[in-house]
Write a protein that binds this DNA or RNA. Structure first.
Lengths: 136, 136
DNA sequence: TATATAACCTACCTGTTTAATAGGTATTGC
DNA sequence: GCAATACCTATTAAACAGGTAGGTTATATA
């Protein structure tokens, strides 16, 4: 499997933030309760989105999160990448992976690179807004 | 990551069989030595290809494996699927996964289903022969 | 200024998967 | 009969998945 609960829950949080955007901030407690996901678990996923600059936050009473851009300016690709750390379909293509000694002669590497591009292009072609519109 | 060493080694074995096809059978020992992969490990991957009907085999002295079809008749998709058991990008789409209670209302499911199709189509569009040709 | 509410941080835990290794049995050509 | 080969099953160490637990820090409001 390629996209774990981290990435999937991240997308659902972003959708929830978009749907419930009002004047103030949306608390994790509310998101967790609406989505039926443990707040404690979301607590360690949302900083990944936050540190990637996708959110604005406020601490303390009445605090919470909100989108820092309009929904049409987020792609599913950037959301999932910021929580999963990329879509490498094989370990040879992972960022931190040591250089493969067969790299030059590997006949299959181009196949996996092509696969990665196909996935990236697909997910970068879908915006939050498109999913939101579909939901109605 | 989506495709583990099982799937990748499977593709390399198939390529090796195609490259070294002669009159007789190719032994795992030779494949392992050419590919620099533990024979013992390949020993538990190759039955997956064999049981899926992708190979012909002969036991005993001078035995081994060979492709049962011409290289242009294998796609990377079918090779990897037979060893990895499908390309579900998220656990909700795995064959043995229990029905998701949110299935009907899930706004993100269509996204993951689309992703799965994009991956399937890409890998089913590449044949063994195409990779072989590229290697020359 | 006290308090409740929130984000934020770090450690821990349990089960599963990955990537092998190990040791054997069955079959067959020479 | 023997060597080479496929075939089968168990074990293992490490990483990862999917959480839980327990706290600290900041802040609006009463």
């Amino acid at each position: 499997m390629m996209i774990s609960t981290r990435g999937r829950y991240a997308v659902r949080m972003m959708l929830d933030l978009a749907e419930n955007a009002g004047d103030g901030y949306v608390s994790l407690k509310d998101i967790a309760s609406r989505q039926g996901i443990s707040k404690k678990y979301l607590e360690q996923i949302i900083p990944l989105l936050n540190h990637a600059g996708l959110l604005s936050t406020a601490r303390g009473h009445q605090g919470g999160y909100r989108l820092s851009k309009a929904p049409e300016n987020y792609t599913i690709g950037e959301i999932v990448r910021s929580t999963e750390g990329g879509f490498a379909p094989v370990s040879c293509l992972e960022d931190n992976h040591e250089e493969c000694p067969r790299k030059g002669e590997c006949a299959t590497l181009p196949v996996w690179m092509g696969l990665q591009k196909v996935v990236d292009d697909y997910l970068d072609g879908i915006t939050l807004k498109e999913i939101l519109d579909q939901m109605k």
